[in-house]
């Protein structure tokens, strides 16, 4: 704070409870003491030298309180959940993330174990990777899955900021897992599924501002399954939509979704969009 400090004479007078001190002086001194640790330290020293009566009284109180404080049961300081975790993930989300990760693992195992003719060039992972994050995103903003939803809905952080936080945390877990898997299988380049999955996530959020995030995610997963994944499964080829020359289209979808999310940022605090 300020470079100027109270004089020893002033602090001594204050410690003695000097009644001749002007009220404005006392006021200014107290205002300074509130913000200056150094002068508070000097005041503490001054009390012991200038006002032995007060020091003795304080010692008596300390002596009386000490045994009581020792007898009080210490609460077990159990902080087994770091506070930052609940800022990024609701506690009920852990099972959903675990499920998403196990689906990733399963796809990897199936891809490795199954004979190539079953899937052809389109590995299972290629087909599910773009929509996999949506399952966990859907669970992050839903009335049915979050017990504390009614409480959360009325708070300042409810709405887009919280939704984006939770979506980011989902992507931070799911995308590296998919990346590792893509590298292990070598089936396709990261850009080929990364851009579609980001595009799907942003479209889910954009649609979610109208019909609710969970509904939007369900609809998009169903659409993906019916229009792209099922035919590709049938023919055994990498679907046309995931061919490298389609990437600009996915990029466009990502940009469009992001734009809508930004334009409709206030719509997310409406609880009807939490379904």
């Amino acid at each position: 704070m300020s470079e100027e400090h109270a004089s020893t004479r002033l602090i001594g007078g204050y410690a003695r409870g000097d009644l001749t001190m002007a009220a404005d002086t006392v006021w200014a001194l107290e205002a300074h003491l509130e913000t200056c640790a150094l002068c508070r330290g000097r005041l503490a020293a001054a009390v012991t030298t200038e006002a032995p009566g007060i020091a003795a009284l304080l010692d008596t109180v300390h002596a009386g309180l000490g045994p009581q404080l020792d007898a009080a049961v210490q609460a077990p300081a159990r902080r087994w959940r770091p506070s930052w975790a609940s800022a990024w993930l609701t506690p009920v989300r852990a099972p959903w993330l675990a499920m998403t990760l196990s689906v990733t693992l399963l796809a990897l195992l199936l891809g490795a174990a199954a004979p190539p003719m079953l899937f052809g060039t389109a590995s299972l992972m290629v087909l599910i990777a773009p929509v996999l994050p949506l399952c966990a995103v859907a669970a992050s903003w839903s009335r049915g899955l979050d017990p504390a939803h009614e409480l959360t809905a009325s708070t300042a952080r409810a709405g887009l900021p919280l939704l984006l936080r939770r979506t980011t945390s989902v992507l931070a877990v799911v995308l590296p897992a998919l990346l590792v898997e893509g590298w292990l299988t070598g089936a396709m380049t990261a850009a080929q599924w990364l851009l579609p999955s980001l595009a799907f996530t942003s479209t889910t959020l954009a649609l979610g501002s109208v019909v609710g995030v969970t509904r939007a995610a369900t609809a998009l997963v169903a659409l993906w399954g019916a229009v792209i994944a099922a035919p590709a499964w049938d023919t055994g080829r990498v679907p046309l939509a995931l061919q490298p020359d389609q990437l600009p289209l996915w990029g466009l979808l990502l940009a469009l979704g992001t734009g809508i999310v930004i334009a409709r940022r206030n719509a997310y605090s409406l609880p009807r969009n939490h379904r």
Binding site: P91, A148, H149
Partner: peptide
């Protein structure tokens, strides 16, 4: 009727709500 996270302690619950309320 309010739902809460059963595994949270009272302090964690109120802390979490304080965080949500900025």
């Amino acid at each position: 009727e309010f739902g809460y996270y059963k595994r949270f302690t009272v302090r964690e619950f109120v802390e979490y709500m304080a965080w949500l309320k900025e």
